[in-house]
């Protein structure tokens, strides 16, 4: 299984990759949705961690695309937004797994 990390903040992306590496997962980091699309599509057993606040193609658009795949991978959305802002932005259309930043290992591992 590969964990794809789509996160525009280099510090957050790198630290997340390092932690996953320590836990024993292979991860690939993409700075935006566009570069993620340029790579090989994820497989069903993969996990994609998506930051909702991406530049360009938004995190939500990426998640919708992933969900529409025939064999969709597991998606974990992460965001620095407050829960109210999230409610305003997405209404009831909230991603199934949504973790707030700053992330803790426990919260993350629980979904892997």
């Amino acid at each position: 299984m590969i964990i794809h990390i789509v996160e525009d903040d280099p510090g957050v992306g790198d630290s997340l990759g390092l932690l996953l590496d320590q836990i024993g997962h292979k991860s690939i980091i993409y700075p935006d949705a566009e570069s993620f699309f340029e790579s090989k599509p994820p497989r069903q057993e993969d996990t994609v961690i998506v930051d909702l606040g991406l530049p360009g193609v938004s995190g939500m658009q990426l998640i919708r695309w992933l969900d529409s795949m025939k064999r969709p991978p597991k998606v974990i959305a992460i965001t620095g937004q407050s829960s109210r802002a999230i409610a305003d932005l997405f209404g009831t259309n909230i991603p199934a797994i949504l973790l707030r930043k700053p992330l803790t290992e426990e919260a993350l591992v629980a979904h892997l």
Binding site: D9, G11, V12, D14, S15, L16, L18, L19, D21, Q22, I23, G80, K101, P102, L103, T104, E105
Partner: peptide
């Protein structure tokens, strides 16, 4: 709030990675 949150997230993840590495 927004700008500090990102590096802080990174710091916490780095520290948690370090903790794992140390204990291993």
């Amino acid at each position: 709030a927004h700008e500090l949150n990102q590096p802080l997230t990174a710091i916490m993840l780095y520290l948690q990675a370090a903790k794992r590495k140390v204990s291993d």
